[in-house]
């Protein structure tokens, strides 16, 4: 299936990292389905985002270095970008979720009061 031959020193760690990264990502996304509340579900994908992506990108780095016969590190930029960006996403999504649950709760209580009157 794969077009070119890779040396042994590249295939062994790359395969290991790919298997670990795939498992971590799939468990993280499974958490998106299994965990009960939204705030608990926030934690599932962050597994795949950090260590899963990191493993796959390191494997990609190893393989493309072996392919081009010189060290290639441009996958490193994606890792750095995701690490820098993930708190911004998490903070905004979290703030939106808290705001929406608060508004919903207030509306529900207003509805209850109106029913009692």
């Amino acid at each position: 299936m794969i077009a070119t031959e890779f040396p042994l020193w590249a295939t062994l760690p790359a395969s290991l990292l790919l298997v670990i990264g795939g498992l971590l990502t799939v468990i993280g996304s499974l958490g998106l389905l299994r965990l009960p509340t939204f705030f608990a579900r926030m934690h599932g994908p962050s597994m795949g985002n950090t260590l899963g992506t990191g493993c796959v990108l390191i494997a990609s780095m190893i393989l493309s270095s072996a392919l081009l016969h010189r060290p290639v590190a441009h996958e490193f930029i994606i890792t750095v970008f995701i690490v820098i960006v993930s708190p911004v996403t998490a903070m905004l999504v979290m703030r939106a979720a808290r705001y929406r649950t608060r508004v919903k709760e207030e509306r529900r209580q207003q509805g209850l009061q109106r029913e009692q009157e």
């Binding site: 299936m1 794969i2 031959e5 890779f6 295939t11 062994l12 790359a14 395969s15 290991l16 790919l18 298997v19 990264g21 795939g22 796959v56």
Partner: peptide
Amino acid sequence: MPLLDGAIWFA
């Protein structure tokens, strides 16, 4: 090569 192939399939 089958090792890497399998790992990529799995991932």
